[in-house]
Amino acid sequence: MVASSETIRLEVPNGSKAVLLKNLYLSIDPYLRMRMNREENYFPSFQPEQVIEGDGVSIVLDSGHPNFKAGDYVRGFVGWEEYSLLTNTFHTDMLSKIKYTDVPLSYYTGLLGMPGMTAYAGFHEICSPKKGEYVYVSAASGAVGQLVGQYAKLMGCYVVGSAGSNEKVHLLKTKFGLDAAFNYKEEPDLTAALKRYFPEGIDIYFENVGGEMLDAVLPNMRMNGRVAVCGMISQYNLQKPQGVHNLPCLITKCIRMQGFLVFQHRHLHEEFIETTRRYFKEGKIAYVEDVVEGLHNAPAALIGLFSGRNVGKQVVMVAHE
């Protein structure tokens, strides 16, 4: 008996403004874990049997939307699936054409994507940096941290980063050009470690970790310091988040601590793309990504973020370009 084969034609419904995508790369980001909680955050929580969605890079196969045509490379919110049909305005509004293809398309999940934009907006707008200031970046080899440290160096700041392995520390000092770096897992006293690296105190702390790290930073901040709260990855898997005991430092040191969402800074998007792409092409910014192949490896890649298994920006390649 010979099995029959059937060709299925993928196309958008007639008369709709839907966009049909073939997904190429998926961005693996810590905030996805927060969407698995029952409490809604800035995005609705994932529901049982719902396809997980996140940032991705795709090629348009068919479109009824006036802004997109077959063959366009795009980035936006897509499902963890081989093909995505975007039918609602939220998803099509979040979709944008990829203007430059002289860099790897996977970079639009990181360097020129949401993490890069987060680093650019968070550092330049939330931190209000000045030349010569002292900057500390936690999770400094990750998708956001690696770019924050380099933006700070380009501004003429003194920059120290921390990471969870000696391999990553070496990367911070050699490839990313930070002034110093340390493995926080080898430090018995984080407060003392930060005092060692910042004897004059910290002007800017770019927060990616939370918990004990934030508690250690606050006493080491200088007067009128700024803390940009981008993420708190150490807290996402805890049933009860850790308390922070040194909050009175916000008063005594006149520290401004501010959380932010990248979507609030869309006015910077074109500036971010043009500036960051130029820096990369000129060799002023380095970038490291950790690519795993196959949609089936996406869950393990997400879990690996929370143990620091990845080196650089974690990406899943769904299909070859």
Rank of each mutant, 00 (worst) to 15 (best):
G64F: 02
H65D: 15
P66Q: 08
P66D: 09
P66F: 08
K69W: 00
A70R: 04
G71L: 01
G71N: 03
G71W: 06
D72Q: 00
V74S: 03
V74G: 02
V74R: 10
G76N: 02
F77R: 06
F77N: 05
V78T: 15
G79Q: 09
G79P: 13
E82P: 06
Y83L: 05
S84Q: 11
S84D: 11
L85V: 08
T87P: 06
N88P: 15
T89W: 03
F90R: 13
F90T: 15
F90I: 15
H91M: 11
D93P: 10
M94Q: 05
L95M: 01
L95F: 00
S96R: 10
S96A: 13
K97V: 07
K97T: 08
K99N: 14
Y100H: 15
T101V: 12
T101M: 04
D102T: 07
D102E: 11
V103L: 01
V103K: 04
T109H: 01
T109P: 03
T109Y: 03
T109K: 02
G110L: 14
L111Q: 08
L111S: 04
L111R: 14
L112K: 05
G113P: 08
G113M: 12
P115G: 10
G116K: 01
M117P: 02
M117A: 10
A119M: 06
Y120M: 08
A121E: 09
A121G: 13
G122T: 09
G122F: 02
G122L: 10
F123W: 06
H124L: 15
H124I: 10
H124D: 09
E125C: 12
E125A: 13
I126V: 13
C127Y: 06
C127E: 07
C127Q: 06
C127L: 12
S128V: 14
P129A: 09
P129M: 07
K130N: 14
K130S: 14
K131W: 02
G132E: 09
G132V: 07
E133G: 04
V135D: 00
V137D: 03
S138N: 12
S138E: 10
S138K: 05
S138M: 14
A139Y: 03
A140D: 06
G142M: 04
A143L: 11
V144W: 13
V144T: 15
G145N: 05
Q146W: 06
V148F: 02
G149Q: 14
G149C: 15
Q150D: 05
Q150P: 12
Q150H: 10
Y151L: 15
A152N: 08
L154R: 08
L154T: 01
L154V: 04
